[in-house]
Simulated scan of single mutants.
Amino acid sequence: MKYQYSALLALAASAIAAPPSPPVQQVAPRKAAAACTSAVTLDASTNVFKTHKLHAHPFYRQEVEAAVKAISDPSLAASAAKVADVGSFLWIDSIENIAKVAPAIADTPCTDILGLVIYDLPGRDCAAKASNGELKVGELDKYKTQYIDPIVKLLKANPNTAFALLIEPDSLPNLVTNSDKEACKNSASGYRDGVAYALKNLNLPNVVMYIDAGHGGWLGWDANLQPGADELAKAYKAAGSPKQVRGIATNTAGWNAWDQSPGEFSSSSDAKYNKCQNEKIYVDTFAPLLKSAGMPSHAIVDTGRNGVTGLRKEWGDWCNVKGAGFGVRPTADTGDELVDAFVWSKPGGESDGTSDSSATRYDSFCGKDDAFIPSPEAGTWNQAYFEALVANAKPSF
């Protein structure tokens, strides 16, 4: 949707996070022998991505390698094969998928940091259908005891591995902009309590955490910046201001350019109400507000699918954007002191949602003119879309 100034205080920004991922499959670790021989301690007052490489975990590697076998064009297949070596975050988006953590740890060498997305709040993604989760509103105790607590136990049992955690995409931003939606009203207390519980209990020496902060087209509007900073800082403080929180994650599973100028939607009639026309401006604008609110303000930015811009008709279009390409590979060389790293948060190739309008979890954004059609259910591999991401990658593989 194109956000109008008259509705800024109650934006209906749809979910842009990656939807549930495929069920757990067995994978064999490749680098177990290179694991650290002593406990890892991460200093969250520093940029840990300067000393640790984001790990190319085995589950995405497995998907990519299977996809390469299905590509008939030798040149495209060769480029696609290189995607398997790109570090990316592993989405722990269900209780079942906690089982992916142990084999991913076994695959992670001492030089790397394993990225995990913590993503299973009750009433998840209250403003969208495609990525609704398994836990219902009111099941906060289940979230704590059956989801967060087992993850904490696993991370404590593996002190020799470094972890970067991206905390609950879309949750707190939805409370800022979708407070008028009944589903978000009902989810609000669970989101706030759940995020605080996760931050408090995952505050471990070998962990660094980033709280999801949407993107410049969401919380970057003039009327949303301060409320957004206050909402995130409130959760951070409710958790006891955990020292392993480094700051925020932006553009998660998103499409926004890092530093395109003028911005992709700078010519829109309502652009004057949003100066955050790219993610660099958004981070640089949002960070001081976070700091003033008493929260760490460094960031990681998802560049996994933002290689091509000018594809969306409106800023809020989030589902399987047609013509998209893989973006800049993960790196700590961002050119901005506030941005620790460009990362790949979204598993490129996994669908954002189905284009089948008869499906239970169909979201109208997945049937828009600028969405790739046909697309399967959220989290399901879309071979044609993956091949397009490779073909359109900037920089190319």
Rank of each mutant, 00 (worst) to 15 (best):
N47W: 07
G138K: 05
L165C: 05
G335L: 07
E168S: 06
T46V: 03
K368L: 14
T285C: 11
A104D: 12
D340N: 10
L232D: 13
I211V: 15
D73V: 06
D270S: 09
E350Q: 14
L225N: 03
S94W: 00
R30Q: 15
P20V: 02
A164D: 06
W255C: 04
L11K: 09
D270H: 08
K322V: 05
V27A: 07
L114R: 07
F342V: 11
P22G: 02
A80C: 08
A188F: 01
Q62L: 10
L219G: 04
P347A: 04
A162D: 02
S75G: 11
H52Y: 14
A235C: 12
S297E: 12
W91G: 00
Q26W: 01
A249W: 11
R246A: 15
F286T: 10
V390D: 07
H55A: 12
N158P: 12
Q146W: 01
K142A: 13
A102H: 04
E350C: 06
D370V: 13
K275R: 14
R329K: 15
K129N: 12
G310K: 06
W91I: 01
A384Y: 00
A332W: 07
S269W: 09
S14T: 13
H57L: 01
Y236S: 08
W318V: 15
R61A: 08
S38F: 02
Q4W: 01
Q146V: 04
V195R: 01
G87S: 11
L199C: 14
A99H: 01
I16S: 03
L11D: 07
N320C: 10
A32S: 13
S269A: 15
P330R: 04
A17L: 04
E264W: 00
I16G: 07
N160Y: 00
V308R: 14
V321Y: 00
M295L: 09
K142H: 06
D85Y: 06
N201H: 12
R305P: 08
L172M: 14
P29G: 04
L135E: 14
P242H: 02
P347V: 01
G307D: 02
D363V: 01
A239K: 10
D141C: 04
I95T: 11
K136L: 12
G240L: 00
S38D: 12
P262I: 07
K185T: 12
Q4D: 10
A56E: 04
Q244A: 14
A271F: 09
S187M: 05
P242R: 02
L290I: 09
F326P: 00
N306A: 08
Y143S: 06
V208P: 10
K181A: 12
G294A: 04
W91T: 01
T360W: 01
P347H: 08
A35Y: 05
A12L: 11
G115E: 06
K280F: 03
E139Y: 14
A371L: 06
D141T: 15
A67L: 13
F342Y: 14
L232A: 09
C36I: 02
A213C: 07
V176T: 12
D107Q: 10
D352L: 05
S72M: 03
H215G: 02
E96W: 04
S6Y: 13
A299T: 15
R124F: 10
G325T: 09
D73T: 04
A287R: 15
T161R: 07
L116F: 09
Y362S: 11
V207W: 00
K275E: 12
S364Y: 05
Q4E: 09
V390S: 06
L338S: 10
A44P: 11
T41M: 05
A299W: 12
